[in-house]
Design a protein around this nucleic acid. Structure first.
Lengths: 140, 140
DNA sequence: ATTGATTTTTAGAATCATTCTAATACATTA
DNA sequence: TAATGTATTAGAATGATTCTAAAAATCAAT
């Protein structure tokens, strides 16, 4: 269940973009916040349906797109695989484990972010940085 | 035309993987080296056909996959767009200009690479790092 | 230099994540 | 409550990529 805090974060962000807080959007957001991993749209759909049987895949795609647009979640595109969605809004990189297929969040310090930005010649203006690692993660 | 140097780099790398240096593979490699930008498979196909009318799109995909596997070119996946292919083998990042759609190579110093690697907890073993910037590039 | 085995190319079909379409449902404002 | 705009939905369409199966090219070794 969405906490009161997440609920108002959601409706504030949505209304800032002239959008409505609907049951489906709240539920998709809830699904993302409840298990803080990196599900694909299909997985979000499967999870969402357990508590909202009537939700459609198209709506899940729409909600995810909306949430990404409002910067409430991040969309993670690795290689040619289906997009994944990430509720972690702190600045972080993604580590993609070849063995398990799992994705891990890696914290980034502001200094590293700064030094990555400083690689850019002055004519370039970056709005976002994506840092991905590919390799072998911690085998649990 | 492929220089003698590139030609033997190609056949050495291929035979190291038990693969043959074929006219199609040489030509696709040549196409990539001639204009050092970041074409999609379709664009490579279009360019390749001007000098080898009979080459097929499937073969272009096959050749690109082979060249990537031999680490003679890099495959660049940005957002949900078609893959792009990059003949620049030096360690570098990619800057994706939202306005023009163009991709620019950004040099990375070994120290930055090192500091990015040092972000990882010990249990993680990275085989590759991908660094992407999204923003506005130099307007020519 | 011919046979036989393996690799490569090819055209077209298949795949599959995602987006689009157009109809219905819902919410908000006048 | 009508009128208008916004959201959801099922199913069709899209499009980059991969697969399939057959033909062509290459190679090894007799």
């Amino acid at each position: 269940m969405l906490t009161q805090e997440s609920k108002s974060l959601l409706s504030d962000s949505l209304s800032k973009s002239g959008l409505r807080s609907t049951p489906q959007r709240r539920h998709v957001f809830d699904v993302l916040l409840t298990r803080r991993d990196h599900p694909t749209a299909d997985e979000v759909y499967a999870r969402a349906k357990t508590d909202m049987a009537s939700i459609s895949l198209a709506t899940v795609y729409n909600c995810l797109e909306t949430l990404v647009g409002c910067e409430l979640i991040r969309q993670v595109n690795l290689e040619r695989e289906p997009s994944r969605f990430c509720p972690n809004l702190t600045e972080h990189a993604h580590f993609h484990c070849k063995k398990s297929g799992r994705i891990y969040d890696i914290d980034i310090s502001p200094e590293i972010t700064q030094s990555m930005l400083s690689l850019l010649p002055k004519e370039y203006e970056a709005q976002a940085i994506e840092l991905h690692y590919l390799g072998t993660g911690p085998n649990e």
